[in-house]
Amino acid sequence: MLSEDVIKSILENLGKMEGVKGVVITTTEGIPVHSTFPPDVTEKISAFAASLLGKAKEMIKEVGGAKVTFITLDTSEGELLISSEQEYVIAILR
């Protein structure tokens, strides 16, 4: 498991990238682990990102059984990138 310092440095590096508004690391159960957003926004992003990933996994399992590794949501005001590894999910808003 990664240490607190390593996670913080990863979040800082991601936050410095052009256009990145914020980063949230959450468990697959939707419990936030680390975030650069305020608590209320973090809670919402964590819950919905984990839920969305869960639904996507269910859908992919039904149609083929491949592993979901990345989700991109394009919106009129930017994009949300969601990636998952083991029991953690990372969501980047940019």
């Binding site: 159960e29 939707g30 819950a47």
Partner: peptide, 9 residues
């Protein structure tokens, strides 16, 4: 196996 974050919200 429910999404705890979503339930909390």
């Amino acid at each position: 196996d429910v999404n705890i974050g979503m339930i909390r919200l």
